[in-house]
Every structure is written in C-alpha cells, then in structure tokens.
Design a protein around this nucleic acid. Structure first.
Lengths: 295, 295
DNA sequence: CTGTTAGCGCCTTCAT
DNA sequence: ATGAAGGCGCTAACAG
C-alpha cells in the first residue's frame, strides 16, 4: 500500500506535515552578505550540524540594513521556522526577545541582553583588536593607526574600542587623525590607507578591522613602493583564505567561522530538540593572533 | 480588526497559506559547496533576482556526491518548493525531468537534454578551456600541460576535452603524462604541479582547470624558485577574487557567477510566475579570457 | 458588504 | 487490527 504509493511517485507534503505538527524543520540564517568569505564557511558549518537531524536552512542577506534585518525576522515568524541564527548590524538584539519568547530557537551572533531566551555565540572583538594593537605597539612603537568600517556595526565599534583601549594601556592617547573610518572592503582599505599615507606623519603600523581592508592597504603600500612590514606593518582580522594568498602573507586575528557555526548550531539544535528550555546561554569563542609576514 | 490582530503580535502562517494555495514561495539552490567562492556570488545573485517577488531560498551542499544530490532533490519535492536551481556532478540531468514535469520550475546548470521542461543556464567550459589552451600554445609553444580535478564532474571532463581539442587543432597530440588529475583545490594544485615539475621534461605552460588549482600551482612554482610566467606560465579558470590578490595576478577565464545567477533566476522566475510554460529554454553564458600577469 | 463553510494533506485520536 | 473523524490556519467560494 505504502509501497504502491511511493512507486507512483507520491511524496508526503512537508507543508501539510508542518501545519499539523507545528514543526517546519527549517531554520533561517540571517547574515549581512553571503558573498563575504566568512559567512559561507559559517553557514556551511551550521548546516552540517543541523542537517543530520533533518533541518534545512534558508538564507537572508541584509547588507547590514535595518529594513532587511527586520524583513527577514518577519519572514522567519511568518514561515514558522524552528530556529533563527541572526547577526544584526542595525537592529538591537532586544528585538530578538519576542521571537524567542514565542517558542522559536534564536541564536544571536553578538552581545545579547541576559535574562531572555536568546542564546548567543560570538567572538570578543574588542579583546582581539586590543591584543593585535598591543602586538603592533610592542613591535613597532607608538605610531599605530586604525582603518575600520562601519561604526554602527558592533564589529566596527568593538574593534575601535579595542584599538583605543590598547593604546591607552600603553600610555598613548589614540590620535584621532590616525583612526580612519571607511568601509569593510578592499576598496575601503585602499581609501583608508591612502588617507593615512598622505598624513604629514604617516603611521609605522596599521591595524585593519578586517582582512579585506588589509588587502586594500597592502595594494596601496605596493603601489607607493613601500615594503610590508619593513616600511609599514599591517595586521588584519578574520583570517580569510586570501590572507595566505596575498604577498606578504597577512598577520591577522583568526576568528574561526567554522567553530562559530558549530557552536551556534549546537545551541540552536539543543533548543529545537527541546533538550534545553531555560534562559539563554552565551558562548564566547576564542580568537587567535596568527603571526605571518605582514607584521 | 486586522489592525488589532497585528498589534497583538499575530502573523499569518505561511505554512497554512502554502497548504491552501499550493505555493511555498520557496526555491531550493543545490550546489556542490557554498564554501567555494564561486557559489556564494551565484547564490546571492539568484536571491537578489527572486527576492523582490517574495521568494526565499534554501540551500543544499552536495559536495558533488550522488547521495546528497538525490537527497536534496527529494527534499525539494517533499517541501513543495516552487523552483529548483540545480548543478549535478553525479546525477544525470535526466533525473530532473520528472521534477519539472510535476510542475516545479527547474533550472539546470549544465548540459540538459532537450525536449523536457527543464531550463538551463551554463558556460561552455570546453570552448573556454580550448581558448585558454590556444592562447598558451601560441604564446609559449607546444609544451603545455593540464591540471584538473574530478573527471566525473562535467566541469572536469569538459575542460579536459577543450584542452585536448586545442592541442589537436595545433597539430600536437596531447601528451597523457602532461594531463594530471587531482582535485579542484589549492592542495590539488600543489600535488599536480609537483608531479608536472618532477617530469623529465617539465612543461613550459600549465592550464589549471580552476583558480584554486592555479593558486596551488603558483605556490609550488614559488617554492621551487621558478618565476611565473618567465619560467612557467599558469592560467586558471573562474576569476575568483583571489585571482587579483595573488602575486603574480592570475590570467584566467572569467565565468561571471553573478551573470549566471541572474540568468538562471530569470528563467526560474518566469516559469514560477507562469509567464512561460513550454519546453525548456537553454542559455549559454559568454566567458572571457582575462589576461593578467601569470601568462 | 459581512459571515459562514469547505477543503488544502497530514496525523492523532477514537471507534469499530 | 483497520478505519473514520477532526482540526492544524488559511482563503476561495458562497450565503445572507
């Protein structure tokens, strides 16, 4: 009977099943841009963890825009997904509380208000930036600069804070003209580095808030005939594949996207399976300064 | 009334709507590995095209394995998705016919049997490889080699065919010892290049079946103190971001992932919206040899 | 124009 | 053991 049906090409409707069972076996992963090398690795690793339990993933690209962040959260609600992995650049994490309250598993990739049912997994970007800055200060002296992107984004703000924290810890008040805000892209790195090198007293070392910026900074150094790190040292953040492809290979902070994904997915899964039901759990993933050639 | 409901936090259930309307506004994108730089760009561009019409995307990573390719197709059936974008490495394209027949919009990223309702968008990999090989032959003489990956994969086979076609067209019978099969990865490029350089008569120029292989090949050339392209010329395929990050910048065939995505999504969308209903349409996307520094 | 009803496909419950 | 019924939440069709 069942066999006959299956031979006839019958497949049970997951949507009817979902309506009845109130489970969709669907999660939604909302990231700024799947095109940025970090996120595919992250997404893949989340999928690899939840897949064996029958969960499949939908993706949202917000481009770090508020409207998109809200739209995907609404979509997640509407579609009755079982879980959401979210990283908000504009939307306060508090906006996730309601979703979580309504029974969907929510993992936020960033600082998260305690006391809710929202889980979180994140890196301590401020500490990472502080560590990298300290490394630069000790090795190349007080003439350090920062190129970073979007101030609104937690990643941007935290890394700037870490940079300033490390400067102050060494007794150097961070110099505003040496903190350049552009964009988290290679092009942003080009712009930022040009601005720094055009200063009356260019810096000896530059912390870039991510590897793409660092790549652009290296482009400019080469273009001006400067040797890295001999004339100017450059540090990135993320450790994307390109970090070992570029010459000189990039010294950078490794934030392991795969590990973040596994941890986030673990939190999500345990909640979706009902193994956990209380208050949010919060994981900080360790980072690591990888010293290569550029500083 | 409706306003009150919405203020109370009510959101219509998309799953009930789907059951009723028989439309899920969901598409499934099945690729080998979202972690390979080409696919995020492709996926993003598909999403950007279908998103405005309310469609959202699920992703499947097959790792080019038959079981996964089948599993995701089954999942697509079961979930009653409105459309599928599929690239099969193991599964014959004919397996898509049934799905398409049952009313879901299907776009195959590869050669596709005519006479079905399956649409397709693809590059002509054979022609691309032939063109790149011809360039190498004209510029560096008959001593050319090929490093490629998976023979089962259409991309692998077609590129090898193109290489051989171009050799024969120049009157050189392709030399089997100079056709190395490894894997479509940087590591595969390392392995392949070592094998070629250890030959009694190493080649003067190497066609790599993708950029990752070419990156590995460049690693080996550097490690052995060979200058690229002075001592050995290297050409890639894909034009990933890393192609302009590596030194020397890679000469490669650009296959525009964004364009492929837009075209595929266009085909998909027109069918999902019922604007088209007949036999499959087939698009071949133009490629382009981008000459940079490595050859 | 507002209100009721039936059924999308499934699964759990209850009855036979 | 097999079978029938009800309802998950929605919307199209129909009635008042």
């Amino acid at each position: 009977m069942e066999k006959v049906a299956r031979d006839l090409g019958y497949t049970p409707s997951a949507v009817a099943q979902s309506l009845r069972s109130r489970r969709t076996y669907t999660i939604m992963i909302v990231v700024p841009d799947i095109t940025n090398a970090f996120w595919p690795v992250f997404a893949r690793s989340v999928q690899d963890v939840v897949g064996p339990d029958g969960y499949h993933a939908m993706f949202g690209n917000t481009d770090a825009r508020l409207a998109e962040e809200e739209a995907f959260l609404d979509e997640a609600r509407s579609r009755r997904v079982d879980g959401v992995v979210f990283i908000g650049f504009r939307l306060p994490a508090s906006r996730l509380v309601g979703l979580a309250e309504s029974g969907v598993a929510v993992v936020n990739l960033g600082e998260t208000p305690p006391g809710s049912r929202v889980d979180s997994a994140r890196f301590d970007d401020q500490a990472a930036a502080a560590q990298a800055t300290k490394y630069l200060l000790e090795r190349y002296g007080p003439s350090v600069a920062l190129i970073y992107g979007d101030e609104e984004a937690p990643a941007g703000r935290e890394r700037r804070l870490g940079f300033e924290e490390a400067c102050r810890a060494q007794g150097t008040e961070p110099d505003a003209t040496r903190i350049v805000k552009t964009a988290f892209t290679r092009e942003g790195g080009v712009t930022g580095m040009r601005r720094l090198l055009d200063l009356p007293q260019p810096p000896r070392a530059v912390l870039c808030a991510n590897d793409m910026i660092a790549l652009g900074a290296i482009d400019v150094a080469k273009e001006r005939g400067l040797r890295v790190p001999k004339d100017i040292a450059i540090v990135g953040h993320d450790d994307i594949d390109a970090a070992t492809i570029v010459t000189p290979q990039l010294t950078t902070t490794r934030t392991d996207a795969r590990l973040l994904g596994e941890q986030a997915a673990g939190l999500l899964l345990s909640r979706m399976k009902g193994e956990v039901d209380g208050e949010g759990r919060h994981i900080v993933i360790p980072h690591q300064l990888v010293v290569r050639e550029s500083a």
